[in-house]
Amino acid sequence: MSLETDRPAIPDLQDKARVLRRHIIEMTTAAGNGHPTSSLSATEVVTALHFGGFMNYDASRPDWPERDRFIMSKGHAVPALYAAMAEAGYFPVEDLLTLRKLGSPLEGHPNMRRLPGIEASTGSLGQGLSIGLGQALGCRMDGIDARVYVVLGDGEMGEGQVWEAIATAHKYQVGNLTAIIDQNGYQQTGATADVLDLTPFAPKIESFGWHVQTINGNEMSEVVAALETAVAITDRPTAIVAETQKGFGILPILEEVGDTNFHGQALPADIAEKALAHLG
């Protein structure tokens, strides 16, 4: 369990993010497929939430009603979450290597019925924020002081349902919901700017009555500062537009390969080895 009072130092969180990145590469390369680069862009956010004293949870009691909730709406980036859950003690770290294998609860996209601690089954994009909104409302109805964090992709913002949820969260002044948009700039077939450019996100979301911050989402100190601001706001929903880089942490290796998007594929063993060496 993490408490706000003993927030770890930024270098310690950066080191935890490094550990998560190693897990992400190891598990996806062992699986032979998956989305390592989409997971790597969100690693600072996932790390800060789980280990930076923001989320209250108890890995031994995943159904603890008072817990804060985390939803990976961009479900393909779930390796980042699995890595955090393993480090948090939800399951043994060795289990990460069962990712995507028959019989493993660590499925290609999160499945809440198979892995305790997963708060929403996602993988069809656009749906996590609505589920998170429902959970935020449910907690509020029960007088539970819990916050719901939802990580969305920038490509995912093309889904109309996301904007339905943004509007509705404003209507009900849901002050315990925080959306984090992992703006890594790429989606399946190329740059998000070329596919369906919805940037800048901040003024659009602000116009729905949300509190919005835009930060460098791969800079741990900025992520921590933005989350500190967000959790202090309880009278309306909050969003953090986290400008990130897909594959952050191993970009020099991806540049060497000549594909910095590297969407939806695991690193081959030799490149994974280089990437791990690069991470240290």
Binding site: P65, G134, D142, Q161
Partner: peptide, 28 residues
């Protein structure tokens, strides 16, 4: 009235919100 949400003409969000409420033990 405290147990009813009119989310507007937005069926996709309506169903997602219900899923979230159910995971908090509600019967949406």
């Amino acid at each position: 009235p405290d147990r009813a949400f009119n989310v507007g003409i937005a069926e996709a969000n309506m169903v997602g919100v219900a899923g979230g409420l159910a995971s908090c033990g509600k019967i949406p």
